[in-house]
Design a protein around this nucleic acid. Structure first.
Lengths: 340, 340
DNA sequence: TTGTAAGCGTTATCAA
DNA sequence: TTGATAACGCTTACAA
């Protein structure tokens, strides 16, 4: 492996001169710099990241941690992050799994973006206490070294519920995420708030898991207990799609006996039949903002917590409980935004 | 930052003793080891990855490079890789973009899996020459430090073409990937071979890009030049879906006037209407095998190039050119495997 | 403008 | 069984 030592030897200068030249310092003549650059190229010199990281105590790498790689949400999210990182001279690496947590405390990366419940909040607080910089996308955490960039779950769930209620629904199933999921808890809280104001609306909680299988199980339950038109608010699209798949095998037709709305507006939701109503938000913006905030707290700049706004996307999966006989006219525009 | 030096001081031993104890060497008494371990925990000691990597000249991290984060293929692929990596004590990081190429030559990672045409083959050969270990998933490259794990593109494209021909098609559009794409070139080569044996089959190349937009443009072209039933072989599903979307807005019905088959069998392909016929393969196995091979060549074990086998998945997007009037009976089983 | 030298936190060789 | 010490490749005072 060729190091600055080799370059120094060949150029007849000291290693510090080489280092200065390579780093574009102005403490060195243009002449010697170019001489050194030529030799470096000749020798195929490549700096050693570990050595530099060790000395400078920074790697210029940011890490994003995901629970798994298979989510449909992640593509745009990561694209947004990468754009910001690269523009600011950082590299982005994507990690998943408990093993990789060490990247942060072992200082392989300069900061972490967390969308991964395999990190406990205690763990994250510990890292923050030790000076590591973190942005969380999936929980609330109060610490000077931690910033939050959260979805406006409350607005989203409120939009979804009001949409169903506006369509005349009096009975609404709500399929939740896995226990302890922050997003699920927040969305459920909004559901509760909306229904408290609407005495005539009954809602039934079905415990889900944010995965297709959870939606399928919910569908089974709904089919078995069916006794008249109802709506389902799946707290994410993945479950909504599982639910639609299963319902398609039954007597109940979506957009007829059963209306369905999801959350996340993943690409697939445009393709299920009938098109799934859902809560949308810019995944790319979410990622970009998270990266931006992380870079700021690393630079020591003050930041406030951020919130990602959501909109409702309509779909034929919601038509109202009377639509079996009559199709109600729809008063709403195609997309509506809400912000608190 | 607490280092082994701090532990040594507190324990009243030398840093080498600490290092031995921490690394589970048997050159140290159980007594001193446990004493040191206790102190390490007390001080919240975390090893420094950069220092270790610098000294040991290995990071126990493998990198996978993707052209972008948004592909639907990647979830399972990465899951497969991660499983193997973790089982073998490696961490996996996912990288994208030209900036991140440096991870390999700068020795941040011990090896790379490449599914990313932003790496030129010359670049990869250079890295291999310098001793870096590489597995390529998207090209053929002959070098002792490079291993290939490739899709059986030839079998896949052959299956697809024969499927269309069996259904009576005499006119087949083939929508290609972007220029220089290895997969596209290979699949196209198989198309050529199949049609050379079938004098009565006409095929028309439409240049695509492996993205939705390419499929849409292909659809426009096909709509404009339509003069009778035809089939389309999109060299990946993404384009096939773009094509279906656009065709849905036209007079031409898929599975009626136009039959469509794709390649990759991405999740979405199960949801488009009518269900898309496609070429399937285990993405997870692909990833797992790639990781396995990489770890082997890092360990200096000899490996042969590997091939991922493919199957045909039928769909109602292919019914035969006469299906406008008559539905032909289908002699085939639901999935068929081919291997050369 | 360049060189000397210390040190980042490890591992590993060699003596004790 | 332990300790002193030299690396690993780089950056950066400080000296010349």
């Amino acid at each position: 492996m060729v190091s600055i030592k080799d370059i120094a030897k060949k150029a007849g200068v000291s290693i510090s001169t080489v280092s200065y030249a390579l780093n574009g310092s102005n403490k060195v003549t243009d002449e010697t710099r170019s001489k050194i650059l030529v030799i470096a190229k000749e020798l195929n010199y490549v700096p050693n990241a570990a050595a530099r990281t060790l000395k400078k105590r920074e790697s210029r790498i940011l890490g994003v941690f995901l629970t798994d790689f298979s989510g449909d949400v992640y593509g745009d999210l990561l694209t947004g992050m990468k754009a910001i990182c690269n523009a600011q001279g950082y590299d982005l690496i994507v990690c998943s799994g408990k093993q990789s947590h060490r990247m942060l405390p072992e200082r392989m990366i300069d900061g972490a973006i967390i969308l991964d419940h395999t990190f406990s909040s205690e763990e994250l607080m510990q890292y923050a206490d030790r000076g590591h910089k973190i942005v969380v996308l999936d929980r609330e955490l109060k610490h000077p070294n931690i910033n939050q960039v959260l979805l406006d779950n409350k607005a989203g769930a409120t939009l979804a519920m009001e949409y169903l209620i506006e369509h005349g629904h009096k009975k609404i199933y709500v399929v939740t995420g896995p226990e302890g999921s922050f997003d699920s808890v927040q969305r459920l809280k909004a559901v509760r708030q909306v229904t408290e104001r609407q005495a005539d609306v009954e809602w039934i909680e079905i415990v889900g898991d944010f995965e297709k299988s959870g939606g399928e199980r919910a569908a089974d339950h709904i089919i078995q207990t069916y006794n008249g038109p109802a709506a389902v608010f799946c707290l994410n699209d993945e479950m909504a799609i599982g639910l639609c798949d299963r319902l398609a095998d039954s007597e109940l037709e979506i957009g007829k006996q059963i209306d369905v709305i999801g959350f996340d507006h993943i690409e697939l939701s445009n393709y299920v039949q009938p098109k799934l109503a859902s809560i949308d938000y810019s995944k790319r913006k979410w990622g970009a903002l998270a990266a931006e905030q992380l870079i700021k707290i690393i630079a020591g700049e003050p930041v406030d917590h951020e919130r990602i706004y959501v909109t409702l996307v309509e779909g034929e999966s919601v038509t109202g409980p009377n639509s079996v006989e009559v199709r109600l006219p729809m008063p709403n525009a195609n997309e509506r935004a809400v912000s608190y």
